[in-house]
Write a protein that binds this DNA or RNA. Structure first.
Lengths: 263, 263
DNA sequence: TAGTGGTCTAGACCACGCT
DNA sequence: GCGTGGTCTAGACCACTAG
């Protein structure tokens, strides 16, 4: 036992140190279950429990943290609703991973107009190191000129090239990422990132536009120049809302569509 | 008092009648809080509590339904997470409405590239009754040829026409919807639907593509023909997952983008 | 001060997966 | 049978709003 338990703040005697800085009327106030959530989050982020692994049971966490099971439960409820953790009745709670059918299409919203979504055939065109362009550096919260890894690829469905994509990744984090590793790797790219580079994508934000295919993209997608394409600019974030990927995809939408559900 | 309370099924003596049809191992099983949720949902759908109104407190509902407050609480938690209801600490729980700043942009994901999102200037081009085209009828779950109301409009931001949109609504539900009422009405269109036609939009599903502007659309948007546009096809649903609106928007994305967050 | 939602607890029991 | 998550209860207390 390493210590660091029971530094929790009781209601009415709020945490002294870091965090929150609520802009409300009363000084600060963090419910116990939020503090527990933060502690569990730390264990996830630090890799104490790795993707796919079973985390301690609710009762164990409860008396590790000296709180009731209900409080741990509420903390885990939130983590589950954020897809950081997956509950399985009768078995336990597991750290979420990108190596599962369930998570495969969470970050790919391009669906075939007819038929079930299926996996893309992935063709890597280019992998190289370069200095971050100003715009990319800004989005990755790096200094302009810092080293980034650049990837360009084409994805095909049923033999039809459909997505041309360019990615920029922080060189520091993804050091050692080569075209070989990308080509050899079977499964989702975020699975590779998670397993090989210890970086798990938590959420992403996309900006979508309609653009015209330029000459080079048109030839890659096997369409006429100026064909309308969906431009999808994505920034992905890992723990602590740290941006770790910038991506720009051009989607051919004659037989596919970007699916979005509003609720 | 109209009866119809306490027809709840205890754990282990599951509901006999309708619903669920779970494809699991055990016959059926609906947690109590789900049953409570369904009852509250009925009151919402029937208009017993109208949009914007205060619903009974948790304690009152608890002993109206003969369950603990915690059970009612969990039912309302789900309704709140589905945006059907809004909780306000110290005040109570209110039926959600489209007449509020919060809900304004829930169904409009087109954001300006720079600056805060602001309201569109709305210009109605056309309102008429017609017989539902086959495709629209299918999406609205109607018979082909049934009466629908067709609307065409252009929306502008800062004086720049940006969205050309066509809508189809079931004639039965939206009987009496005229161009005058649409023009006179200030506020979001879904607010009008909710107040004047008793139909509240709960969720929507959008399919997004890139297309070329045809001649007529180009002239409405003040751009060259073949300018790439975002095509957004939406089907909106009210209570019971009943489709009640089909919409096809063409978005000009040179100064705006469709914003989507993946998590 | 009273009423409402929000948190926390402790304990009982149920559904599920495994051994 | 046992351990896990899932449900339900009853009661205490806190935070917020309003009269």
């Amino acid at each position: 036992m390493s210590s660091a338990t029971s530094n929790l703040s009781v209601n009415g005697a709020p945490t002294s140190g870091a965090g929150t800085s609520v802009s409300g009327t009363s000084p600060t106030f963090s419910p116990l279950y939020q503090q527990i959530k933060a502690l569990i989050l730390q264990s996830l982020q630090s890799g104490e429990w790795k993707p796919g692994e079973l985390i301690p049971s609710e009762v164990e966490l409860a008396h590790r943290f000296k709180v009731s099971q209900g409080t741990v439960r509420k903390a885990i409820d939130e983590l589950a609703s954020e897809n950081l953790v997956v509950r399985r009745q009768g078995k336990g709670t597991f750290v979420a991973t990108h190596h599962e059918a369930r998570a495969q299409f969470r970050f790919l919203r391009l669906m075939p107009d007819a038929g079930e979504p299926h996996n893309a055939d992935n063709k890597i065109l280019e992998v190289k190191r370069l200095r971050a362009p100003a715009e990319v550096a800004r989005q990755l919260d790096m200094k302009s000129g810092d080293s980034v890894i650049f990837i360009k690829r084409v994805q095909s469905f049923d033999g039809a090239p459909t997505i041309v994509e360019e990615l920029w990744l922080p060189g520091m984090i993804f050091k050692g990422l080569t075209v070989e590793r990308l080509v050899e790797y079977k499964g989702p790219m975020y699975g590779l990132f998670e397993s090989e580079f210890g970086t798990r994508m938590i959420r992403a934000s996309e900006r979508i536009r309609a653009v015209s295919a330029d000459e080079s993209t048109a030839s890659l997608l096997n369409v006429a120049q100026n064909t309308p394409l969906l431009s999808v600019e994505r920034v992905s974030y890992t723990y602590g809302d740290k941006p770790v990927e910038v991506r720009r995809g051009l989607y051919l939408t004659d037989r596919h569509h970007y699916q979005n559900d509003l609720s």
